[in-house]
Design a protein around this nucleic acid. Structure first.
Length: 543
DNA sequence: GAAAAGGAGAGGA
DNA sequence: TCCTCTCCTTTTC
């Protein structure tokens, strides 16, 4: 199943699959404030937010957290998206280091010769890069493979209030582009504007259609060799620029995506016109987003949902693996299990023996330590662990609005609303109350991870089993490796389950009936030797 | 008597 | 449709 959110964890099959609806292109990363040092919970690492959203926005590979780094450059209102897929897929996952814009490219495959190194050995940092002339590039034909798409999103340049160069992907400037496209005043900090995209998609698509038409006209006028009316019959493929251009013209995927109908533009080429759009599926995130009158501040619910889902996935993974949510509490075996899971889930080459350490030691490692032990995926593991660390903060205040506000704005203290339940359960609600205007819509309170009523009984039981210090008196593992556990206090377990599900009448009879339903589903099975109050998870649920 | 096992129907998402 | 709750009966320990 294609998924974007579960990049950092396990997400059980759900009817809410946003994968087809959103891509990395749909998020306006630069909307995030620049200096994140004062913004919790990512203050510990400036890379975190970038990695976090990169993980989030990837929908190009089903089980991968490798971001498809589609950087963009734009001349408002035109945007071009050179994709790095063709050469990037074998390299390290992108890690943006603001101190060195090109650090993420250090492991590009040998075939990629268009590394951002100037011919005159000019340092290719961000500033010099922006000042470099295309003739300074030591680029070969690899750019020919760069897929180019015209954007159908409405693009605006980000103002300084919502964007900071510190958090922008390094601009990429394929030389071929520069030679054929009007990019005289390229703004390095420009990327997609989620607000415009979501707020007025129709207008955006129409603009894009117009844009593409204008682009075609411009190209055709500037490039007589490609203009069939020019009378020049130069053979196809004799000019790399035109090869690139052909890629642009051949790419019609945007038509389907935005429901555009081609039409002829005064004989100059093909334009595109909006057709009736299908209404987003009811109840989908997309519909919710479309229904929002998206101001800059109202993007918060979108991010809030994304973060909520990500945290839920991390929780699901911790339950599935039977490890604590807090990586600091991991045993050596837990660490190995987590690494093994990541290795399998994302097909990462990890030498697990090099991580024969506890969770406390693991969490104290920096990114370089990870890179040393896992040269090919250390950065990714580090980013994954960062998310887990954030998720483990019980008092984490995920105030998405803070991410969208000027960091100089005074930030209110985290507000945690703790339920008045007894100490059986940590049923606190995370209050995502706005700390800066505008306020969030009605659903400002989000149930903390795992405390929702949608949790399955087997997940709940594993959650209890994962916290023996708290619930060991009522449920415990008999044989962890086989997934055999015993309910020591059936009344209490049933009461906890009823509390979680808001079913005051729950009792063990009903709970055990639900457990028995799992026999048919293959989630649980009877133990080899029938024992009272002893149940056994089936693999992989026991993992 | 408590727990296990399972049939059957209801209800919510 | 799936999952869980609820009620019920019968069997087992």
């Amino acid at each position: 199943m294609l998924q974007i959110v579960p990049s950092a964890g396990f997400s059980p099959p759900s009817s809410t699959d946003y994968s087809s609806d959103y891509a990395v292109d749909d998020f306006d990363l630069p909307l995030l404030p620049g200096p994140m040092d004062s913004a919790k919970p990512f203050a510990s690492n400036n890379n975190s937010i970038q990695q976090f959203l990169s993980l989030y926005c990837d929908n190009n590979s089903p089980a991968s957290v490798f971001p498809s780094v589609d950087t963009c450059m734009t001349k408002d209102p035109i945007t071009f998206y050179p994709s790095y897929d063709n050469f990037y897929k074998k390299s390290e996952p992108f890690v943006y280091d603001k101190s060195n814009d090109w650090s993420g490219y250090k492991n590009l495959p040998d075939s990629f010769s268009a590394k951002p190194v100037a011919k005159n050995n000019q340092a290719a940092n961000k500033n010099t890069f922006l000042d470099m002339d295309m003739n300074d590039w030591d680029c070969k034909s690899d750019w020919d493979d760069v897929r180019v798409q015209t954007s159908v999103q409405s693009v605006t340049s980000c103002s300084s209030s919502c964007a900071s160069p510190d958090f922008h992907l390094p601009p990429a400037t394929p030389p071929d582009f520069h030679s054929i496209l009007p990019l005289d005043d390229v703004k390095p900090e420009v990327s997609l504007n989620l607000q415009n995209l979501l707020n007025d998609k129709t207008t955006a698509a129409e603009k894009a259609a117009e844009t593409k038409s204008e682009l075609l006209r411009s190209i055709l006028e500037k490039s007589p060799l490609e203009n069939p009316r020019s009378g020049d019959d130069k053979a196809e493929g004799t000019d790399d620029n035109h090869k690139l251009l052909r890629e642009v013209l051949k790419d019609t995927s945007f038509q389907k995506k935005y429901n555009l109908r081609p039409f002829d533009i005064e004989g100059l080429g093909t334009g595109f016109q909006m057709e009736a759009k299908d209404k987003p599926e009811k109840g989908s995130l997309k519909e919710e987003v479309c229904d929002m009158n998206l101001t800059e501040g109202s993007i918060a619910p979108v991010l809030s949902k994304a973060i909520e889902q990500l945290m839920q996935d991390v929780d699901n993974t911790s339950i599935m693996l039977g490890i604590p949510r807090d990586p600091k509490k991991w045993s050596v075996e837990d660490v190995r299990g987590w690494l093994l899971w990541n290795s399998r889930q994302h097909n990462l080459p990890i030498s697990i023996d090099l991580f024969n350490i506890t969770g406390a030691a693991l969490t104290s490692m920096n990114e370089q330590d990870f890179q040393q032990r896992a040269p090919q995926c250390g950065g990714l593991l580090y980013a994954q662990l960062e998310i887990w660390k954030v998720n483990s903060m019980e008092d984490t205040h995920l105030d998405v609005n803070n991410l969208l506000c000027d960091v100089n704005t005074t930030q209110s203290a985290p507000s945690i609303e703790v339920s008045d339940e007894d100490d059986d359960e940590d049923e606190e609600m995370i209050d995502i109350s706005p700390s800066c205007s505008p306020p969030l819509p009605s659903s400002t309170k989000v149930a903390s991870r795992g405390s929702g009523s949608h949790i399955h009984l087997w997940q709940f039981l594993k959650e209890l089993l994962a916290s023996p210090q708290t619930h060991g008196s009522c449920i415990r593992w008999l044989d962890r490796s086989k997934g055999v556990f015993k309910i020591e206090d059936s009344v209490r377990v049933a009461r906890l389950w009823g509390k979680r599900k808001n079913r005051p009448a729950m009792n063990y009879d009903k709970l055990s009936r639900s457990i028995r339903q799992y026999y048919k589903k293959g989630i649980m099975k009877k133990t080899e030797r029938s024992q009272r109050l002893v149940y056994q998870f089936c693999t992989p649920y026991s993992l």
